[in-house]
């Protein structure tokens, strides 16, 4: 029982606060067979028992993607972030406008996913479902199915956050919707060309996206495949060739 979590929480209500500040809370440790507590458990405790803080959630099961934030510097889902006793910092997702406390506005980046024309582009409507290799299905395509649009990859992406390629590069998550159609035998569009024009070569292969992705999508590795294909198709910009 001696154990506890000290949570430093980013607070900001843009309608009343001149600037953000941090509040610190003590949260008692809850023992269970996993010997872990989640970020969500800590937030729930504070919100229920101490004072209201703003955060978003729905499933508490790692699926809806609504609780993404930065805990101890790493973007991810609060409900799937495991914590040990000690001090932990909770901040909103890097690079997104804050609505209140830990809630950010992700709608602009969500548009990028929708704009990829993420459905199967086919000349005739699909009337029978085609074969797909089992490994490709479970290791890549099924994982992209489960993309939570949580934007953790955007918050961690070096091309975006360090090189500021926001305008040229659609970003890792939306690039995965292009990749899903690239691998999908039903799709009849040229997705390699699309990846090239969506800035696939802006990715510097830092690997952060793969590390933070809760869906386990091999994001960086999949982008590398698209880069290779685009290069083979003669679509690599010259400036990037050295």
């Amino acid at each position: 029982m001696a154990d506890s979590i000290t949570a430093k929480i980013f607070r900001y209500d843009p309608t009343v606060d001149e600037e953000p500040y941090y509040s610190t809370y003590e949260v008692p440790w809850v023992e269970d067979p996993t010997n872990k507590m989640t970020g969500m458990q800590v937030l729930q405790y504070i919100h229920e028992e101490i004072e209201p803080i703003a955060y978003d959630y729905s499933c508490i099961s790692g699926l809806c993607g609504r609780c993404s934030m930065v805990i101890d510097g790493i973007p991810g889902l609060a409900c799937w972030t495991t914590l040990e006793p000690g001090t932990h910092t909770f901040e909103p997702l890097t690079g997104f406008p804050v609505i209140k406390d830990l809630v950010v506005d992700r709608s602009a980046i969500k548009e990028r996913f929708t704009d990829t024309e993420p459905y199967n582009k086919t000349v005739n409507p699909i009337s029978e479902i085609k074969d797909i290799d089992y490994d490709l299905y479970w290791e890549t395509l099924e994982r992209i199915n489960m993309c939570r649009e949580c934007m953790s990859c955007y918050a961690s992406c070096q091309a975006l956050q360090m090189n500021n390629a926001w305008e040229k590069y659609i970003g890792p998550g939306a690039m995965m919707t292009i990749a899903q159609r690239y691998y999908d035998p039903h799709d009849e569009a040229n997705r390699v060309e699309q990846a090239a024009f969506a800035g696939v070569f802006e990715c510097i292969q830092c690997g952060n996206c793969t590390n933070v992705c809760p869906a386990g999508i091999p994001v960086a590795e999949t982008i590398a495949v698209l880069q290779k294909e685009a290069e083979a198709a003669g679509l690599k910009p010259e400036a990037k060739s050295e």
Partner: peptide, 21 residues
Amino acid sequence: LTSVQLGSVTEHNKEGVSCSV
């Protein structure tokens, strides 16, 4: 079929065949 058209990749068995099929 609509779900596939709109972009779901539906379940496939070990031989790579769709469960629907």
